[in-house]
Design a protein around this nucleic acid. Structure first.
Lengths: 247, 247
DNA sequence: CGGCTGCTTGAACTTGTTCAACAGCGGTGG
DNA sequence: CCACCGCTGTTGAACAAGTTCAAGCAGCCG
């Protein structure tokens, strides 16, 4: 299975062959490439499609007038951006590629057709949207309450688990192609302090991060240190009751 | 119009008489009272209904094991909690009343019936859900990038504008029944520093806050100081194209 | 009256920021 | 081929913002 969206949704529900086919169809809609650090869409734009990340990392962000920037969310392969964007007139934030990104632009019509024909997919996309909202809430907790060390540990745990869901980890390793500046903007820390915090995690023998490759040496310890409780990711196959009964 | 939800949604779309009637029906579902600082629902619960706040203030919050608490969202009259909660098995956060709260518990069945019969309401509820998500993102920006002064100013602006949408302001005044401790937990500040920050806003002649009554003495100045840009609230009647054509 | 909650103040302290400089690396153009 | 540039990561030191601890006051309610 090389379709990251299908892989992710199968954590929620069992997908039939026709569900799979429908998701594959989504992945083949108008496929585009974007270079690293280029915008996919900007605040004020009015999009006419939904983006599905196929490969690479992207982010949502907002900037304040004086240049301060907050990364609001990190988008990984299999992430679908703003299902019902069609209702709001304009984007209130921007999205940018962190690495080179391939994404499919799915039109409203295609999306509606798929959700109409495949109710299990509709259900699963709902689950995905609700998890996305839960992640956003957890980030608020991090930004508001966690210390620098906890915050950085937490985001590493979260990204690792999310990457594992779409098959992008290898044992306790994963590609981790984000710069320290971007990680700092995501955690609300200065780049200098983020650097020192990473060093602290390395010194504690919790992680290795070098050459865009992350190894989590002791995930349980990192989770404890970061007060990371994965239940907000709702990974416990909650939708199995809607499982496919076709082959 | 004493229905805060209808009042809020009418900022997005024109509501027909039957839309109004349907929203009034929602407000009459199983009406409950909750005392101040009591939970409406707890992390781990599995709700079987959606809450519609009719009067009073509430909040969503999460606590960390060691007692640190982050208020994730503030719920005002007219706010509807988690439309599609039915999909996720358990709550990943709690909700509590800040003041005494009256709310209607709307069952899945009633909600589905209304949205099926009144497509304009469905559309408007979508708009509301997307605005809620946008608010959550803006809070991330505040927590991650804004200084204490900006953060406090920003939340005051936001709450004032949201209260105005549901008719709970009077000129530049509004009831503001939240304690400093709760405001501190919402802004990620200590209660002591929140107190000093409020004093700074008072000293700058921007606000008066006394006896649970907030007066914004200079909204434009407060907006500038807080880098408050209301476009994330999507208030510009974006859904007028779906306006009712019945009386 | 006593005890509670919410607000306020002072002072010491801690965490994270800012500023500045430098090293390593890869790409580009002379 | 080498010089140079820009980007990323790293380090040190001074600094600022916000926290913590501790105490006190006002109003309210039983």
């Amino acid at each position: 299975m090389d379709n990251p969206l299908a892989r992710k949704l199968s954590h929620f529900t069992r997908l039939s062959a026709s569900d799979q086919a429908a998701l594959d169809l989504l992945s083949r809609q108008r496929v585009r490439q974007v270079n690293a650090r280029h915008d996919l869409i900007r605040e004020g734009d009015r999009p006419d499609h939904v983006n599905l990340i196929l490969s690479g990392w992207a982010c949502r962000y907002k900037t304040l007038e004086d240049g301060r920037r907050q990364i609001i969310a990190i988008l990984l392969p299999g992430d679908l951006c703003d299902l019902n964007i069609f209702i709001l007139r304009t984007m209130d934030h921007s999205m940018a590629a962190i690495t080179p990104v391939t994404h499919a632009e799915v039109s409203r019509e295609v999306l509606e057709e798929v959700t109409l024909k495949q109710p299990r997919i509709t259900q699963a996309l709902w689950w995905d949207a609700l998890v996305t909202a839960a992640i956003q809430r957890e980030w608020s907790v991090s930004l508001g309450q966690r210390t620098a060390l906890e915050r950085v540990g937490h985001i590493l745990c979260e990204l690792f688990v999310r990457l594992r869901m779409v098959g992008l980890t290898n044992g306790n390793c994963c590609e981790f192609p984000i710069t320290q500046v971007d990680l700092a903007d995501a955690t609300g820390l200065s780049a200098v302090h983020l650097n020192r915090t990473l060093q602290e995690l390395r010194a504690g023998e919790l992680i290795v991060l070098r050459d865009r490759l992350l190894t989590i040496r002791d995930l349980p310890a990192l989770q404890v240190l970061s007060l990371f409780n994965p239940n907000y990711l709702h990974l416990d196959a909650e939708g199995q009751q809607y499982g496919a009964n076709e082959p």
